[in-house]
Structures are given as C-alpha cells and as structure tokens.
C-alpha cells in the first residue's frame, strides 16, 4: 500500500494577467521525501512555493495537505498545518535579535493570552521559559548560539541563511520548503549545509522540498528531482535520470548543448 501523500498538487496553474507562471503543476510528496525543484530563472519555482504556502491562490487546480484542501486558507493557517519555508531573498526580522527571530516563529504554538503576558501569570512564564529553551536549542543546532543576542542583520550571509532555516523549524513543520538555501555560500559552507539538511530531516522527521541552482548540491542531496521550464514540469526522476535527460540538458544549456557536461556524478550518499 502506498503511504498517504503529505502534499499533493493537482494540475495547479497560476496566471498573472496574461503570464502563466505555473501551468499544470503536479506534485506528490510522500512523508520523509527529500525532493529538489530545479529549472532556469523564471521557470516558476518560487511561484510554486508561493502556491503551496498560500501566498497565491491557484488560478486552477487544487492543493491538498495531508489530504485536506488548502484553498482559501491564509498563509498563517497553512503554516499552522505544518508547512514552513525560507526565502530566496533572505527575509529575517532585521531589527530583532537572532534569538527573537526564532522565538517569533513559536507564535503558532503560543497558548498564553495577552492578559497572561500583562499579568505575568505562571502560564506565561512557563511557556516563555520553554520557548526560550527551545529557541536556544535550535540556535545551538545551527551554531548560532553565540550570536543569540546580536541583531539578525549583523550576521554574515551564510549565518543569515542558517538562521532562516532555524526560524522555519521553530514553527514545528512537517513540510519544509527551502528556497535556494545554498545561494551565496562557498564550497565548504555548502558542504556543511548538506550535512545539516540531512541531519534536521531525520531529527525533526521532515519532508523537504528545495529549490537550488547549485547542481552538485541538488544531485547529491535529493532523492528525486523535478525540473520546471516556463512553468511546466519537463522532467522528473532520480538525479541519475535527470542528469541524462536530453530535455533537461536542452533547457539548461540551450539546444546547442552538445558536448557540454552537467556536473560529474558523485558517489551516492545514503540518505538519512
């Protein structure tokens, strides 16, 4: 028996006026999968993320999350159902501290009321202590604990990317969407990031969908890859199959792609 899909997008189309950003997008994510979404700039990858997280409503088609339709839900409600994400252009709360950035993401699971906060009730103090501990634990995991009280925008670029992932995890998601997590990172940082993603995937029992331009990164990390071009899925399969797919090579390198190589195959890393 096949397991229940965590995310299911069926024939999803998104049009902006005359422009079709995503067309006939089908995606099924099973619990525990690590899937890469690749494609040239403007192919509709981030739009797909925005559709899944409820920033945009699909023009056609529908999306279900653990078999519940998400149509009509605001992004914060979809987040409450277990979807969290990072952003291509980093979106941290700059003026807040690193720690506060993570704490904010516990908002979904905050039970105490305004009145509890004003009267500093036991419930408030207990929950704040718990949030504090958990936030620090996450920062430790991402080696950001030394900067806990620094402003978020004072972090180096790679650290900001890590903080975004830590913050996304604080919502306690089942599905994590990473939008170009390795962008702007050097080779060593990218290597560390890969290990980190594998680690959090098992540790937090996550399903991960990620967009990335770094082919080596995607090929090594993902079990399955989906290729978008002009809003349409042109190929889907294992890294091996994608690497050899002529449509993918054409999409990435133009039709005159003869003799051009995609990154060499790496020894396979066992997932998890």
């Amino acid at each position: 028996m096949t397991p229940t899909p965590l995310l299911h997008a069926q024939r999803v189309t998104k049009r902006f006026g005359g422009l079709t950003a995503v067309a006939d997008f089908n995606l099924t994510l099973l619990p525990g999968e690590l899937v890469g979404l690749i494609g040239p700039n403007g192919a509709g990858k981030t739009t797909a993320f925005n559709l899944i997280t409820g920033v945009y409503a699909p023009s056609e088609g529908h999306i279900t999350l653990a078999q519940q339709p998400t149509r009509g839900l605001t992004p914060d409600r979809i987040a409450a159902r277990g979807v969290s994400r990072t952003f291509q252009n980093i979106r941290l709360f700059d003026a807040m501290t690193v720690l506060e950035n993570v704490k904010t993401a516990y908002n979904l699971n905050t039970r105490y009321t305004f009145l509890d906060a004003i009267l500093r009730t036991r419930r408030f103090r207990d929950e704040e202590d718990l949030i504090h501990q958990r936030a620090l634990d996450l920062l430790r995991l991402f080696r950001l604990e030394d900067d806990a009280h620094a402003r978020a925008d004072s972090l180096a670029y790679g650290e900001q990317r890590r903080l975004e992932i830590a913050r996304a995890l604080a919502t306690q998601p089942r599905l994590l969407l990473l939008d170009e997590p390795a962008a702007g990172m050097n080779a060593q940082e990218t290597e560390e990031l890969m290990a980190m993603i594998r680690d959090i995937k098992t540790r937090f029992d996550l399903t991960i969908l990620l967009i990335e331009h770094d082919m080596r990164f995607v090929m090594q990390l993902c079990e399955r890859i989906i290729v978008l071009e002009y809003g349409r899925i042109i190929a889907e399969g294992t890294p091996q199959a994608i690497r050899e797919d002529p449509r993918v090579i054409a999409a990435y390198l133009g039709d005159a792609a003869e003799g051009v190589e995609l990154p060499p195959q790496e020894p396979h890393h066992a997932p998890g």
Partner: peptide, 12 residues
C-alpha cells in the same frame, strides 16, 4: 519588520 515572512511563519 517583514509582513510576508511573519505571515508565512504563522503570525495571524
């Protein structure tokens, strides 16, 4: 700080 990020992280 960032309305969109806040909403996507579950802030109503």
């Amino acid at each position: 700080e960032d309305e969109i990020a806040a909403e996507l992280l579950g802030v109503n």
